[in-house]
Simulated assay, not measured.
Amino acid sequence: MHGFICRQNIQGVGVSLPSWSSDTIGNTIAFIHSDPDVLSLLKQQSYFVDMSDCGFFQLDPVTLVPECCKEYKFKRNQAIAKRFIGDHKKAFKTTSKASNS
């Protein structure tokens, strides 16, 4: 999708997780743009069409975001990600390999 967006010079696409809750991110993703034609173009991307044809995705019609929707913004915090065990293990392996060289 990123390659398609770059080739088409599309800017300002947002992502929404409308089924998000405190327990799960849900099984729905929505793309948002101020121009509905941009979203229609995005829906025609071969990846989305193929996944829809295979039954993995359901592509809904482009609609306006309802005024009553709440807006939340998430920003990845790299400092927090470093606190997770997987990141510690990865850093430890990298450090161990460098020490053994």
Rank of each mutant, 00 (worst) to 15 (best):
H2T: 15
I5V: 15
C6Q: 14
C6H: 14
N9R: 09
N9V: 07
I10T: 05
Q11H: 14
G14F: 11
G14P: 01
G14Q: 13
V15W: 12
S16A: 13
W20G: 01
W20V: 07
W20I: 02
S21H: 01
D23Y: 00
G26I: 02
N27I: 12
T28S: 13
T28A: 12
T28D: 11
I29H: 11
A30Y: 06
F31M: 12
I32A: 04
I32W: 05
I32N: 01
H33F: 01
H33G: 02
S34A: 10
D35E: 12
P36Q: 06
D37S: 04
S40A: 03
L41H: 08
L42C: 06
K43P: 02
Q44P: 02
Q44T: 14
Q45I: 08
S46N: 13
F48K: 00
F48G: 08
V49A: 06
V49M: 05
D50H: 08
D50A: 03
D53P: 02
G55P: 04
F56A: 07
D60A: 02
P61C: 10
T63K: 04
L64M: 09
L64A: 10
V65R: 06
V65C: 03
E67F: 07
E71F: 11
Y72Q: 07
K75W: 06
K75H: 07
R76T: 15
R76A: 13
N77E: 14
Q78F: 07
I80Y: 03
I80A: 09
R83V: 00
R83C: 13
R83N: 01
I85S: 04
G86D: 10
H88Q: 12
H88V: 05
K90W: 03
A91M: 13
A91I: 02
F92Y: 13
F92L: 12
T94E: 06
T94Q: 14
S96I: 14
S96V: 13
S96K: 09
S96Q: 15
A98N: 02
S99M: 12
N100W: 12
N100V: 15
